[in-house]
């Protein structure tokens, strides 16, 4: 039980750290990393929290779920990073601007460089 408890507390701690990062950091990469940490913490909870089967073996169902969850998290992270990159390219900065006025299309770094060279 005590091992499980360590995992459980760690899981809760990690997911809270992740959430804190998501809320407090403005940079999109940190926000995405924060969501990932939240997910990892919850996976840890999912592994550690359910009671063991009679005989002391771990319950296989949560493990199957976490495996699926990792796949989901991977694709979510890939998409989020892709969109974040595009935000950086289109607006010139990797942040979510707040409602102050409509965001303007920013010349991409590549076109900027090209213009400088010409």
């Amino acid at each position: 039980m005590s091992t499980d408890l360590i995992y459980l507390v760690t899981g809760a701690g990690v997911s809270m750290l992740g959430f804190r990062g998501f809320v407090t950091r403005a940079h999109l990469f940190w926000k995405i990393l924060g969501i990932n940490l939240m997910g990892s913490g919850i996976f840890l909870i999912l592994i550690a929290a359910p009671p063991r089967l009679p005989g002391g073996e771990a319950d296989p169902v949560p493990q199957a779920m976490v495996l699926t969850g990792i796949v989901v998290a991977l694709s979510a992270t890939a998409l989020a990073l892709g969109v974040a990159l595009r935000v950086a390219v289109r607006t010139g900065r990797p942040y979510l601007e707040e409602e102050a006025g409509d965001p303007v299309d920013h010349p991409t770094a590549a076109s900027e460089i090209r213009r400088e060279m010409e």
Binding site: I35, V83, V87, V104
Partner: peptide, 17 residues
């Protein structure tokens, strides 16, 4: 548009959390 990319990013983050 930049507007759509930002809106989509925000939507994605909210949705993931």
């Amino acid at each position: 548009t930049a507007k759509a990319t930002l809106a989509g990013m925000r939507y994605l983050l909210v949705s993931l959390v």
